[in-house]
């Protein structure tokens, strides 16, 4: 328990580094503003106040909520489909060989092509956005899960078998647990992609959400509101990444930090 508190403290402390990086970006942004003028690049203060206005207006909450919900639902479906299938394929070399070329094809199709197709199938609806997200994200999660399970340490499976541990506990306790080392980075990439693709799909299909708001900003040539929406979407992504994925990961990688505390090289 104490060590967990320590890790939370360390995590918050690491926030300073993030803050420093953000300050740097803001400084470069400000410099850009001074060089190109407010029409091309509004200054950070203006954009941040625009962000505050958008966030504080209750009528915007459903818009932000819609984008977040679509991205998360797409991510959740991909997790169930791609992740679970990947785990299963990691256990079977034959299935892995079969799906690999398929995966290359799926990953090779640009999300924009999916949007066009899916729009023809479903029109400007929630489903369109979610399906596009799934198409972009599921193969990534599949690969992460499949690589992880197929590279697991089989000697541990033998050990567990020798002690009479059943197949279900072996699959979850050993296979899944070892798959997480490649699956979590894939999940981080996938959650970023989910938000990006959701916004892009909304913008192109006119399905509302943050993408829809961006489309409006473009129509009125309102650079500060466009930037404000971008900041909001990035903020959502950062929240998911740092509030969900990172703490989960550091909890799982406890044993790694045990050998190398505080990142000190010995």
């Amino acid at each position: 328990m104490v060590s967990r508190l320590g890790r939370v403290g360390q995590f918050i402390w690491a926030g300073w580094i993030g803050l420093a990086a953000l300050s740097l970006i803001t400084a470069v942004w400000q410099a850009g503003h001074e060089a190109f003028g407010a029409f091309i690049l509004p200054d950070p203060a203006t954009v941040l106040s625009a962000v505050a206005v958008i966030i504080l207006a209750p009528e915007n909450h459903p818009i932000i909520g819609a984008t977040a919900e679509r991205a998360m639902r797409g991510l959740g479906l991909s997790l169930l489909g791609g992740g679970a299938l990947g785990l299963a394929c990691g256990y079977s070399a034959a299935a892995m060989r079969l799906t690999r070329p398929l995966l290359t094809v799926l990953l090779g199709v640009p999300p924009i092509a999916w949007i066009v197709l899916v729009m023809i199938w479903f029109g400007s609806t929630d489903t369109t956005v979610i399906v596009t997200v799934v198409a972009a994200v599921a193969p990534v999660l599949f690969l992460g899960a499949a690589e992880g399970t197929s590279h697991r340490d089989r000697r541990l499976d033998d050990m567990a078998r020798a002690f009479g541990v059943g197949p279900a506990r072996r699959a979850f306790g050993l296979g899944l647990r070892q798959a997480l080392t490649t699956f979590l980075p894939a999940l981080a990439v996938a959650s970023g992609t989910a938000f990006k693709v959701a916004v892009m799909s909304e913008l192109l299909t006119n399905a509302g959400g943050a993408g829809g708001a961006l489309a409006d900003a473009r129509a009125t040539l309102d650079a500060s509101s466009a930037l404000a929406w971008i900041v909001i979407v990035v903020g959502l992504l950062l929240a998911v990444e740092y509030l969900v994925i990172h703490p989960f990961r550091s909890e799982l990688e406890r044993w790694r930090t045990a050998a190398n505390p505080f990142g000190v090289k010995t």
Partner: peptide
């Protein structure tokens, strides 16, 4: 079985490693 290499689960403590084969 005591294997030639210890075959412990890296992500579990020594006690948890022993508990792993006991739990069921």
């Amino acid at each position: 079985v005591v294997f030639q290499d210890p075959r412990l689960l890296d992500w579990k403590t020594a006690a948890e490693n022993i508990a792993y084969v006991l739990r069921h």
